[in-house]
Nucleic acid binder design. Structure first.
Lengths: 355, 355
DNA sequence: TTGTACGCGTTATCAA
DNA sequence: TTGATAACGCGTACAA
């Protein structure tokens, strides 16, 4: 066993302070009792030697790591990085440390990351599950005693708490706004991979957040007597190229679309860019609404109407719930819905066909 | 000692497979030798019981964690989150895991986070140091055998490798562009806290990246015979309010400023917004350049000229260097400079005073 | 108030 | 090819 670094241990400190290992451990660990004099000499010896407690050994001994694992879809997405900030700040304040991992919105990688974190013996997990139908790894974690809180997404039969936005309500709110302004041909654009880019059934959408929004979208459409609203949903919006393709499709469609809903701010930005490049003016030629209050939505002309998702709060709430679980609260798992209000800005106006 | 979760251990697997602990450990750990038959029965027992190796115990035994610690200024800043992505991807590919922490650009918190990571026994550290003059914690880490690579910033006497942008060169390039276009009254806006918001000496800037840019900025100004260029540097740009104040100051200054350099993309976005709100037109009334190719710079009208910092590459490079250190390469620590080219877009044009 | 001795789950050494 | 057994650094009954 070739130890690489030989860091200072309690034994070293004990020796230097002429006390037993146990005594040194007690004052350094801040538990048990010790006389003022020995306490002083131990502490003196400790920072003379530059003692740094070994958190690994401590965890082995106590059985708890004080670590919480977080698996997000993409840390580069401000949606998630802000949530991570909320998680970190709140966890830190509670004396917990945070380990972050990316799933890249890929189920295999999500499973892999969860496994890594479990082997690291995290006390609990916060995960934004990539696919509703593929959550056995999360169920296993829960069964093995590691509480899980889902972030931004809700998986009913998982048995975990979930913190999500009010997706159906937000979609309804946006649609009301658009319908009142005379819009009827409205498209919903998402990154979700749909067969052929088109939606055949709601259950094809494996992420509850998106599914609920689309459900709200379609409910509203049906309410106005539009039957084929499923054809107004476009999937596969994953990069500039695919989004250019979708925009081209929408612009040349026999349905003369007057408004677009972007399922997240990355898609929103690409749509904005694509429309600008094609000389489409907002809101005159087209209205645009994006989920998430991203920086870019405030500097465009006109600024872009958004659904405000307070993801810092999402994260904060998720941690609080997780901590409650860690403390042994045995209430049934449930869904915590955080309101995500629609904020109208300049990118939405009256439909050109009526206004 | 109340163990909370009693996970399956090698001992359990060994018992189930009717072999000794040592044998089970060998096949599960993938080291040593074992006959094909025992290997099979051990593996069968392992995944029948759902064995998950305890990484903590493994680390205790081997003395290495396979963890690398990262301390960034703010994970919410796309500059850093992209770097973190570069770090994660590269580290993961090398079989290392990543623990991320925020310093909030505050020295105390940076020290605290480094300490936390060290206690976690990370194999190495990647840090964006908040203050050049306050790096004893990093020196201590290095001395104790944990290699450090600084990110985006270079601290000469630290004895650590550093991955940075070509800050002086980029500033020079931008300034050439602006000077050629007739600009002379150019302001540099940074978040760095300067006494009274004004710069008295370059050494007041505790972050090499900013210092080098300002140095390039002032060199170029001096080159045109402008002596008091230090007064063109404005500090304390930390939020909307302070930036509004700075913009107001610049617009009413007796120097009729025609161009502004934003030290990062958060500042850039706020400046853009502040200028727009005041009816200042780009580039007619004012030219603007921002560091970092943030999303928002591409959707404004006109799009904003930037200095492109490939921070994914920064992160990737930092990890590679760190791994080289972990493998024991004993070359002297040095600075790795990554080019950060100026990309002219619509926000920079001829100075109104000459054009 | 202090010290002894064992356990946590692994790896690694050395005999068998 | 296997199995006992001692580390690793810390917490913690229990005894002194």
């Amino acid at each position: 066993m070739n130890r690489k670094k030989n860091s200072i241990t309690v034994a070293d400190v004990a020796r230097a302070a002429n006390v037993s290992k146990a005594t040194a451990a007690r004052v350094l660990g801040g538990y048990g009792v010790a006389s003022e004099s020995t306490r002083r000499s131990v502490i003196e010896a400790a920072d003379r030697l530059g003692y740094q407690p070994n958190e690994l050994a401590r965890s082995m001994s106590t059985g708890r790591t004080g670590l919480i694992g977080v698996v997000v879809g993409d840390i580069e997405n401000a949606f998630f990085s802000r949530a991570v900030r909320g998680i970190s700040d709140t966890a830190r304040a509670a004396g917990l440390n945070v380990v972050i991992a990316n799933s890249g919105e890929r189920p295999e990688q999500e499973r892999e990351m969860v496994s890594v974190l479990l082997r690291q013996r995290v006390a609990g997990l916060i995960v934004a599950p990539t696919d509703d139908r593929d959550v056995r790894h999360l169920k296993d974690a829960i069964k093995a005693g590691t509480p899980v809180v889902t972030l931004d997404r809700w998986v009913p039969d998982l048995g975990a708490d979930g913190v999500c936005g009010g997706d159906h309500a937000a979609a309804t709110e946006v649609m009301e706004h658009l319908l009142v302004n005379g819009h009827r041909r409205i498209a919903y654009v998402t990154a979700v991979d749909l067969t052929d880019g088109r939606l055949s059934d709601l259950s094809d959408i494996p992420i509850s957040a998106v599914r609920e929004r689309v459900r709200g979208f379609m409910d509203a459409m049906h309410g106005t007597g539009i039957a084929n609203s499923a054809t107004f949903v476009r999937g596969g919006a994953v990069d500039s190229r695919s989004i250019d393709g979708i925009i081209d499709g929408l612009l040349t469609d026999e349905q003369r679309f007057t408004a677009i809903l972007a399922s997240d701010s990355l898609i929103g930005a690409e749509i904005y860019r694509s429309l600008s490049a094609r000389g489409i003016r907002l809101p005159k030629d087209m209205s645009l609404v994006s989920w998430f209050d991203a920086d870019w939505t405030r500097v465009t002309s006109p600024p872009v109407s958004i659904i405000d998702q307070p993801t810092y709060l999402f994260g904060q709430t998720a941690v609080k719930r997780l901590i409650a679980r860690l403390e042994g609260q045995a209430i049934p798992p449930d869904q915590i819905v955080i309101p995500t209000p629609f904020i109208a800005r300049g990118s939405t106006g009256k439909s050109r066909t009526t206004g």
